[in-house]
Computed example of a mutant assay.
Amino acid sequence: MAAARFLVSGKVQGVFFRAGTREQAWRLGLRGHARNLADGRVEVVVAGDAAAIEAFAGWLRRGPPMARVESVEHAAFDEVEAGGGFVIR
């Protein structure tokens, strides 16, 4: 099982980004969380199949229709910290 942490910048708060992220994670069988950060970014932590995480990363670079993603930082992450299911914090 692989895990990753993403920090997504741009117009990603108030545009249903976290809800869309949860939908994509569920669709790909990933677990983890998405949360807004005080600096305007969204943090996303996921764990699951490496190919699913790669597909998920591609979606994060686009986001939902109302979002405008400017950058996505990606780092490996300890999968134990990803938790169970996928939640919006």
Rank of each mutant, 00 (worst) to 15 (best):
M1C: 11
A2K: 06
A2Q: 09
A3C: 12
A4C: 10
A4V: 07
R5I: 14
L7S: 08
V8N: 00
V8M: 03
S9H: 14
K11A: 09
V12E: 00
V12G: 02
Q13A: 09
G14N: 10
V15E: 01
V15L: 03
F16L: 08
F16W: 12
A19R: 12
A19W: 13
T21P: 04
T21F: 01
R22P: 01
R22L: 06
E23H: 11
Q24F: 03
Q24C: 09
A25H: 02
A25M: 02
W26C: 13
G29T: 06
L30Y: 07
L30F: 08
G32S: 09
G32D: 02
G32L: 04
H33Y: 11
H33M: 09
R35M: 07
N36T: 12
L37F: 04
L37Q: 13
L37T: 12
L37W: 06
G40E: 10
G40T: 14
V42I: 09
V42T: 06
E43H: 02
V44L: 11
V45H: 03
V46C: 07
V46G: 02
G48V: 03
D49W: 04
D49K: 07
A51K: 13
A51C: 09
A52D: 11
A52C: 15
A52Y: 05
I53K: 05
I53H: 01
E54A: 15
E54Q: 15
E54K: 10
F56E: 01
A57Y: 07
G58Y: 02
G58V: 04
L60P: 00
R61C: 07
R62K: 13
R62H: 15
G63C: 02
M66P: 12
A67E: 01
R68H: 14
E70Y: 03
E70N: 07
V72P: 03
H74F: 13
A76G: 14
D78M: 05
D78V: 04
E79C: 14
E79S: 15
E79R: 15
V80R: 15
V80Q: 15
V80G: 13
A82M: 09
G85E: 04
G85N: 06
F86P: 00
F86D: 01
I88A: 12
I88Q: 10
R89F: 00
